[in-house]
Design a binder for these strands. Sequence first.
RNA 1: GCCGCUAUCGUCCAGGGGACUAGGACGCCGCCCUCUCACGGCGGAAACCCGGGUUCGAAUCCCGGUAGCGGUACCA
Length: 441
Amino acid sequence: MRVRFAPSPTGALHVGGARTALYNWLLARHDGGTLVLRIEDTDRDRSTPENVEQILDALRWLGLDYDEGPISQLSRTERHQEVLARLLEEGHAYRSTAAKPEVDAYKAQHGAERGFRGQAEAEGAVRLRVPDDGSTVVHDLIRGDTTFAHVHLDDPVIARADSSVLYNFAVAVDDLDAQITHVVRGEDHLSNTPKQLLVLKALGAQPPIYAHLPLLHGQDGKKLSKRQGASSVQEFRDDGYLPEALLNYLALLGWGSEDDETILSIDQLVTQFAIERVSRNPARFDHQKLRWLNGRYVRELSVDELTERLEAFTGRGGLRGAVEISREKMQTLADFWPLAGFLFDGPADDPAAREKWLDEDGRAILREVREALQPLDPLTMANVQPALEGVVAAREVKPKQVFQPVRVALAGRAVSPGIFETLVVLGREQSLARIDAVLAP
RNA sequence: GCCGCUAUCGUCCAGGGGACUAGGACGCCGCCCUCUCACGGCGGAAACCCGGGUUCGAAUCCCGGUAGCGGUACCA
């Protein structure tokens, strides 16, 4: 089995493209096949080295490796010209200056459902000759057979007037030469497939097996767009998502394992993935479910591993203690700093929290807490907990009445990791200093 | 407009002639746990697009309608 992922470098790799890459990768790895990476850069305006690098970077981060390539489609110009000349010579294609107005005029005369047929001319773009009768059937692993009657098909333009080739031609030739056995790509290419099949037929070549994936939509059912949150792989990385979680989520958009599992490691995906089980329905991208899934993966990481990733993500060091007491409370790496940053940068400033918990009563309690903590050195879970609970017991109040003022004194806000843990991680000196800062007149 | 694809809870995925009282997950609601926020546990509400047909029997097969999406470039 030989499969390929063939993105066009128009900018960042979107999650739809990432899913196509993933499915191809899973198919190849499941089968012991070969994955070829090809860059479809025949559109010279949009294809820049920066855009190509963005795609490679995204694939690297996701951990999707490939066995051959990247092959630049543009670099195959010579071969394309050779095949184009052959098609022209054999009469399978012809030059025509007909453009949109001519095509429209043709349809006005013959009916909108009739495909355009041109006359051979000495110059102009190259069109492939589509037979008037019969039909081309696309055999698809996911959708079954789709029949395209030739009468409805326009003679497709396969090369510009300057002979530079177009997508539907280049893709057919490149897949053929690379001996691709399975073409797995988005459903937006389904209508293009008969054109490619016709090119292959004119060449007398055996077509690959096709599988067209359902499209990915945004939460509103429309195209994915920035307005609905992250949509490119880079954005998800910057938003603190783990590649393994994104991969797991993407795998589930358009496919489900036989036993209906939700959490699937990459290894499980490789063994369980089956292209025949891919859904035919377009899927909407649900950021909330991804967040939840990411949280599950965050909590599966060891403290060391999570610390490493968070230090890389935040650019700060010495995070281990903070990570250990915060991991239950975050879903993305980006959640960490708002939650635990106070441990390093000092208390946050939440006036509402201060007003509510650091009133007369709160400060009175803080004084008692300070006294209870004073003799403890160093602070440990074993000595901090009884100390604070002693204050609760002595005062005969709810635990919250004691813990919240302490929390606000240390964190500057009403939300933080567990209060005992926070005291221990902060240490005796810092803890007392922050309490004193509140009690100071 | 024309050509094509698709149609199960709000969302994703199961189920593909009788096993359906339609299953799982996210989200939502309630309860429990609890020092905050979370995590975790338990429970609940929530769907077969509409109309015909085939059949003893249809969510499942067929046809039509509707809706959504894609293609219709000298883009990919």
